[in-house]
Every structure is written in C-alpha cells, then in structure tokens.
C-alpha cells in the first residue's frame, strides 16, 4: 500500500503578539501533518490560538519561526503564504460572503480571483450539491445563516483545493443548523477527496473527524 499523500505540513510553528505586558506567545512549537482526503479537528479554549494557527497554515499570516507548506498539484509542497487561493480553501465562522454578490457570484468570485476559469455551471453544480440550487440568485442578506455557510463551503471548494481550512464553521449557527452544516461539510469533502482541518469548540463535531487534536498552551497534541 503506497504512503498517503501529504497535503499540509507544519513544522515548529511559532507565533507571538506584542502586548502591553510584553510578547504574548500564542504558538510555541506546532507540528502538523494532514494527508489527502482525511479530516482532522483542532479544539481548544477561546484565545488558545486556533484561529492564528489556521491563518498560519493558510498563509494569511507569517510565523515567527517554523514553516507551513501545502500541496499544490504539479508543484509539490509549497509555502502557504506564496500560494493563497491556489490549493487551500477557507470557511470562516462569519461566512464572509461579499454582501453585494448573489450566491452564484460569490462562488464564481473565488475562481475568478484565483485566476481559474470557472463557469457558472461549475458554481451552480457546487451550490446544488450543498442544497442551494434554487437560491443561486439570492443575496447573502436574503439567505439564512446556515444557507450562507453552505455558500461559503461551495466557494471554498470551487478551486478544488487539496485542503480545506474551516474556522468554527458552525459557531454562528443554532444546534440543528450547525449539525446540518457539519454533516454537509464532511460529506462534500469526502466526495471531493479534499482534506479538512476543522477548528471547533464542539467535542461532538470534532469526534466526527478522522483525527482530533487539542491546542493548549501553544502546543498541539492528540486529543
């Protein structure tokens, strides 16, 4: 059996922020490997650095030390911050959709920004796969929180990323809607073969992933 393909790896990630009391060390030394198609979860208390870790993994911020790389098809593992939008998809807690664009346009935007040719049919198919085939022309303000998050999931998948980073995607949703979004998220990543890194407070949702980690005192350890 061949070795599983590594789609995301981090070694020795360190990050601190300036504070009135001196440097605040958020991540001490984080090592992480995610394989193709697997789902992993990261739990931790508020302020433990989960979002910071996700931003470092996704290239939205730069670590003080260490490095994060992800798989870019055809180019192998590349530094995250150099290839934003190419091999990583993001799902945020607050959906972060463009309020002036409808659902279909929001999904297409991700492809256009990344410089990929994506037709309306691709975006429509993705929206249909998350159950929003009938609401593609609706603006975010005309959609519920759960529906917005489903649009965000479709947007994250339009560029066929090798890994999807989800930052508390159910944090703004009620229990039932959160469960439905979680089910959908796990389903679509499984169908697309995309690896998932899920940051969540919920033990229940975390338990549904292949591997679980806990971030505490700036160190990541298996749950």
């Amino acid at each position: 059996m061949p070795d599983p393909i590594i789609v995301l790896s981090a070694q020795g990630l360190q990050k601190s922020f300036a504070s009135p009391a001196g440097p605040l060390e958020v991540l001490r030394s984080v090592d992480l490997v995610v394989h193709a198609g697997e789902s992993v979860s990261i739990r931790g208390s508020s302020g433990s650095g989960k979002t910071t870790l996700l931003q470092l993994l996704g290239g939205l911020d730069v670590a003080d030390a260490g490095e994060a790389n992800f798989l870019l098809p055809g180019r192998g593992l590349v530094p995250a911050h150099l290839n934003l939008g190419k091999g990583v998809g993001f799902v945020f807690q607050n959906y972060q959709l463009m309020p002036e664009l409808n659902a279909l346009e929001n999904v297409r935007l991700a492809a256009q920004v990344a410089g990929r040719p994506a037709t309306g049919a691709d975006a429509y198919a993705l929206l249909e796969s998350v159950g929003l085939g009938g609401r593609v022309r609706h603006l975010p303000s005309q959609l519920s929180g759960g529906e917005c998050q489903r649009v965000a999931i479709a947007r994250a998948l339009i560029n066929r990323p090798s890994v999807l980073l989800a930052d508390e995607p159910t944090g703004n949703l009620d229990e039932a809607t959160g469960a439905e979004v979680m089910r959908l998220l796990l389903q679509v990543v499984a169908e697309s073969g995309t690896a998932l890194v899920l940051v969540t407070h919920s033990r229940e949702f975390a338990a549904r992933t292949d591997r679980q980690w806990v971030l505490s005192n700036g160190v990541l350890s298996p749950a």
């Binding site: 939008g85 190419k86 607050n94 990344a114």
Partner: peptide, 12 residues
C-alpha cells in the same frame, strides 16, 4: 476590512 482579508485569502 474583513472582505479585504477574505479576498486575499481567495488569492487576490
């Protein structure tokens, strides 16, 4: 601001 951040995350 957040939309700017999201656009960067999308590869802008």
């Amino acid at each position: 601001s957040r939309e700017v951040g999201v656009l960067v995350a999308l590869g802008a």
